[in-house]
């Protein structure tokens, strides 16, 4: 359900941590418009926060497009970054794997919190994450 039938409601440039907060707020508003339950919104906005931060801190910035879906009601995002790409995507998504000081729970956590999750990346080509959450 990631893009077909989705209505683009916002595009957020991601270059600073202020932009990560903006992405969270935009997705949060989309869930509010759908009158989603708090838990549905919190889960997906948390996933969005992890993915947007990764784009800023590891991906040299990027962009997130936010789509609203009516049937079934939900929100999906496409987040693409300008980073070096990920060599081993399965390893990157396993809990505890980190290239920096973090605990390495972000990417795997986002995958668990989203209803659909797809990550496409290869060295030199940046990373694209598509994920969706029902309202």
């Amino acid at each position: 359900m990631t893009v077909p039938g989705g209505r683009l409601v916002a595009t957020v440039k991601l270059s600073t941590d202020r932009d990560v907060a903006r992405a969270r707020q935009a997705v949060s508003r989309a869930f509010d418009d759908l009158k989603a339950r708090a838990i549905r919104k919190t889960r997906f906005v948390t996933a969005v926060s992890e993915i947007a931060r990764n784009a800023v801190t590891h991906g040299r910035g990027g962009e997130m497009s936010i789509f609203v879906h009516d049937r079934p009601p939900g929100v999906s995002v496409i987040c693409s970054d300008n980073g070096p790409g990920i060599e081993n995507t399965e390893q990157a998504m396993s809990d505890g794997f980190s290239t920096g000081r973090s605990m390495g729970k972000g990417l795997g956590g986002a995958r668990r919190l989203a209803d659909t999750f797809e990550l496409v990346s290869s060295p030199g080509s940046g990373t694209v994450v598509r994920m969706s959450g029902t309202a």
Binding site: A38, I39, R43, K105, G109, R112, L113
Partner: peptide, 14 residues
Amino acid sequence: MRPAVAMTLVELGM
């Protein structure tokens, strides 16, 4: 802490 935040943190393993 909101209940939804607590539930999400547990899923994150935090």
